[in-house]
Amino acid sequence: MVKIQPFQVEQWMDRLETTPGVLNIAETCAASVSVDDLVQLCKDKNAPGPLSLSTKLTYGAIRGSEKLRQRVASLFDRESEASTLPAENVIITQGAITANYLLFYTLVGPGDHVICVYPTYQQLYSVPESLGAEVSLWKLKAENDYIPDVSELEGLVKTNTKMIVINNPNNPTGSTTPKSVLEKIIAFAKQRDIIVFADEVYNPLYHSLPDGQTAPPSVLALGYEKTVASGSMSKAYSLAGIRLGWVASRDKSIIEAVAVARDYTSISVSQLDDQVASYALSEPVLRPLLQRNLALARSNLALVSAFVEKYKSVCSWVKPTAGTTALVQFKKKGVIVDDPSFVLDLLEKTKVLFMPASPCFGSGHDFKGYVRLGYVCETEVLKEGLARLGNYIEQNLL
Rank of each mutant, 00 (worst) to 15 (best):
V35A: 01
V196M: 06
P359G: 02
Q191L: 13
T120F: 01
V258N: 02
A189L: 03
L205M: 09
A87M: 07
P210M: 09
D14L: 11
S358M: 13
S230C: 03
A248C: 08
K252R: 10
K252F: 01
K312N: 15
L294S: 06
L209M: 07
E134V: 14
I97H: 08
S175G: 01
L353E: 07
T176Y: 03
M233I: 03
L103E: 13
R15C: 09
V258M: 03
D274L: 04
I91L: 09
T321F: 06
A240I: 12
I186T: 06
A82K: 05
K3Y: 03
S32R: 11
S175W: 05
P6M: 08
V35Y: 02
V228N: 02
Y59H: 02
P128V: 11
A322V: 12
S175E: 07
A302I: 11
G369C: 08
L272I: 15
Q329C: 12
K351G: 04
E183W: 00
K162V: 06
I254M: 03
T321M: 12
A187G: 03
R63T: 12
Q11T: 13
A240L: 10
T18Y: 11
Q395E: 15
V127H: 03
A73F: 00
K139V: 15
G21D: 11
Q8W: 11
I267F: 11
C315M: 08
L353F: 14
V247G: 00
I92R: 06
K235L: 05
D251L: 02
H365D: 15
N100M: 03
G155N: 13
K333T: 14
E309D: 15
D44M: 01
L296S: 04
F342L: 07
F76C: 01
L389A: 04
L131F: 04
G223H: 05
G64R: 08
K179H: 04
S299F: 02
L57K: 09
S358T: 15
E200C: 04
A387H: 13
I115Y: 06
R243Q: 14
S175Y: 02
V269K: 11
